[in-house]
Write a protein that binds this DNA or RNA. Structure first.
Lengths: 159, 159
DNA sequence: GGTGAAAGCACCGAGTT
DNA sequence: AACTCGGTGCTTTCACC
């Protein structure tokens, strides 16, 4: 994993691709006054360096029938088996995010489900994992912010 | 917002594009035994229907110098001004996610920062917002799971 | 709503500066 | 490292089914 330094041109390329991964390289080239070949080489280098890990669609989960979001804080038994619990959580596709944390909880995860009934099943499944003492659920009433693009734009324009 | 019904072919298309938004439509066509033109039309319809909201790069935040993640629970004053607080949070690009929640906290958000010092500045900024009574921070020691693709694949293969 | 072909471009590697 | 250029292959449209 070699040290990799992004310059202004790299930032601008990422800044455009973040909003639309299918932006033609020729468009980027035109805007940055470089050749499309250069854009191509730069993107490939960033992929090889692992800066760009992949791409993904942003879908409307509500329209797909997955309107329910909850955050679940997990308290582990004294005899911590964090790794084991994480592995079990990993088997549940409805858990989209999990962190080992300091503070109130030992583990903290995000659950996406169709509805409350569906969510209940998932949370019970978490409660049943060996080593989980108890859980505390926070139900999302509204996803007010969900936007990593703002952060990216600010990163690329501050440096 | 018209009712929109996805069929098996749509699911398969999304299933492939989720892993790589630049998957050539000709590849998808070959695999699904349909024409590239059809893939094109289907994707366009899903975009118009709002199922596909956009596309985004998955970047390595750590390599970009943003290794710090924390979740911050926000307690509001009795005289709730949720909307106002959300608007203020929206002005901080380092807040990538925020939810209005039931349970322990009134609002719950995710913070991405360079390091602890940087995070402190952001959390102080949250504390300073009018209407915020106090906050409770959970620092991520490890991002053990971060994968919405698993959920998507399970959605597209269960139906 | 799907097809297949054709035109227009984009991608991407090779060779050059 | 970046540019130009050309072959290859992708996208997108359109007439037809």
């Amino acid at each position: 994993m070699a040290k990799f330094r992004l310059d202004e041109v790299d930032h601008q390329i990422l800044d455009m691709l973040i909003d639309n991964t299918r932006t033609p390289f020729t468009d980027i080239a035109k805007k940055l006054l470089i050749s499309a070949g250069t854009v191509h080489v730069r993107v490939k280098k960033m992929e090889e360096a692992g800066i760009i890990r992949g791409s993904s669609l942003t879908l409307d989960y509500v329209k797909l029938g997955y309107a329910f979001i909850a955050y679940v804080g997990i308290f582990l038994e004294k005899t911590h088996q964090t790794k084991f619990v994480i592995e079990r959580l990993n088997e549940i596709p409805n858990i989209t995010v999990a962190h080992v944390t300091t503070g109130k909880f030992n583990i903290f995860c995000k659950v996406r489900a169709k509805d409350t009934k569906h969510a209940k099943d998932i949370i019970f499944r978490i409660d049943d994992i060996d080593g989980v003492a108890r859980t505390e659920t926070m139900i999302s009433l509204e996803e007010s912010i969900n936007d990593k693009k703002r952060l990216m734009h600010s990163i690329f324009n501050e440096m």
